[in-house]
Design a protein around this nucleic acid. Structure first.
Length: 308
DNA sequence: AACGGAGTCAACCGCTATCGA
DNA sequence: ATCGATAGCGGTTGACTCCGT
């Protein structure tokens, strides 16, 4: 490279974009080990990397940070948490991510946009009245359209708490501790007042203490089986639909199941167990399998499952 | 085997908030 | 009070993978 050009356009020329190389990652990790996750711009000004500070920070936060879940799909519990919190906070991904150790705001964002795309597609295909092809597609994660859950007051979490910053209120190590997580009040549909000491942990009761939302009475006269009545009734419940929108449905039982079961927020184990989760959990596929067949009879004729 | 659509993931961009001079 | 630098966040995009046809 000509020296003049180098002098004139040094900064612009040297900025690298695109996928990160392993060597770059190493340099970045070394920098963080030495100085902590800060001074991102100095990485470039010191000539360590040809990346912007912004890019470096992003790489660290999304990929190199310890205890991240890589290549591991959102568990049913994580999905439910995201859905709940999105209803509450809106698209505050960084904030939502603080409730999901091992997950980044980018992960949450990607999860949500995938879900939205899926929903949009389903709406598009099944929304038209004359959609004679709108048979329930068992394949893929088809979910029904759901209503918005009422927005509630958000707990006082800081989006920066995931970093091991000076803020001790809720460091990542705190969140990474499954025991702490279990004790952490999850946002829910019921707002309660906590003592001052809990102010930073949110103001919500654990889900296990919340009664399942009242199920409206099924409309009389339809020739559904009792199970169908039950499920149809729940379709009126936004929370049920949200749950249905996830790839899981152990929630079909009572609400107490929400906070029980496998270590809800253990980033490692919940990831490791994903394979067995698939077997043990109810996926949308199996969920549809478990719908009483007469439910669909009243919607429109269904092909046999083998045709799905 | 090839192709196309859908899903996933990583990275960039633009904007805003924060902080220090 | 102002201004510039930096950090952080949310939206978007493009590449890649998977899966059904």
């Amino acid at each position: 490279m000509p020296s003049i050009r180098k002098m004139e356009g040094f900064k612009k020329e040297e900025i690298r974009k695109g996928p990160w190389k392993a060597e770059e990652d190493e340099v970045l990790i070394m920098h963080v080990k030495k100085y902590g996750p800060r001074d991102w711009s100095s990485i470039r000004s010191k000539g360590l990397l040809q990346r912007t500070g912004k890019s470096s920070r992003l790489r660290w936060v999304n990929k190199l940070r310890p205890n991240l879940k890589h290549g591991c799909k959102f568990s049913a519990e994580e999905e439910r948490v995201v859905i709940d919190l999105q209803a509450e906070f809106g698209n505050k991904w960084a904030r939502i991510a603080t409730y999901l150790p091992g997950r980044t705001d980018n992960d949450v964002k990607n999860f949500w946009s995938s879900r939205q795309k899926r929903l949009a597609r389903i709406l598009q295909t099944s929304g038209t009245p004359s959609s004679s092809n709108s048979k329930p597609q068992k394949s893929k994660n088809e979910v029904p359209v759901f209503q918005d859950v009422p927005t509630l007051e958000a707990p006082m979490f800081s989006s920066s708490m995931e970093e091991e910053s000076s803020s001790k209120a809720c460091s990542s190590s705190y969140l990474d501790n499954p025991e702490h997580i279990r004790m952490m009040p999850l946002p829910s549909l019921v707002k309660t007042d906590f003592p001052d000491g809990y102010a930073n942990l949110g103001q919500y009761e654990p889900l296990s203490t919340i009664p399942f939302p009242q199920i409206p009475q099924p409309q009389p006269g339809l020739l559904f089986s009792p199970e169908s009545h039950e499920l149809l009734a729940r379709l009126d419940d936004p929370y049920f639909l949200n749950v249905l929108g996830t790839a899981d449905a152990p929630e079909l039982g009572d609400a107490a199941q929400f906070s029980l079961g496998p270590p809800l927020f253990d980033p490692v184990s919940s990831c490791m167990n994903s394979a067995t989760d698939v077997k043990n959990h109810v996926t949308p596929d199996t969920l549809f399998d478990e719908f009483p067949s007469d439910m669909f009879d009243h919607i429109e004729p269904l092909p046999s499952p083998s045709e799905w």
